[in-house]
Amino acid sequence: MSNLIPKRVKYRKQQRGKMKGNATRGNYVAFGDYGLQSLEVCWVSGRQLEAGRIAAQHFLRRQGKVFIRVFPDKPISKKPLETRMGTGKADVDFWAARIKPGTVLFEIAGVPEDLAKQAFARIANKMPVRCRFVGRRLAV
């Protein structure tokens, strides 16, 4: 299974950081007709995103287009098991996307609403957060 990682980065490792508040960007459906919105804070790994994409595409059987709205650009390091503390920061274990409440994770275009809901239910099972189904918001 191919994994989502950046092509190039400025620094090999990052500090953990904090995720306070709600998403103020990427919090509405922009490309597709329907979206899957996160309701919690988390790191979503590239592997989880890929699992979600595959689950949706297998269900939709190439009927619709699936958009992934987040990208795992944060390196998460992890020390190996049974290792003593110290000796510097550990190697990168996986790459994660920072998710805040309101972030739209996936979008689907070109399918009816009921089919999109079923596809998103399959994606939501692969996500480490509670999610909800959203449509496009009002525009004036």
Binding site: K7, K10, R62
Partner: peptide, 19 residues
């Protein structure tokens, strides 16, 4: 879909570090 799979990096590949 075929083009997307070909362009995706292989698992375990590391990104280029600019510094």
């Amino acid at each position: 879909a075929a083009a997307g799979e070909a362009a995706a990096p292989a698992a375990g590949a590391a990104p280029e570090v600019l510094t």
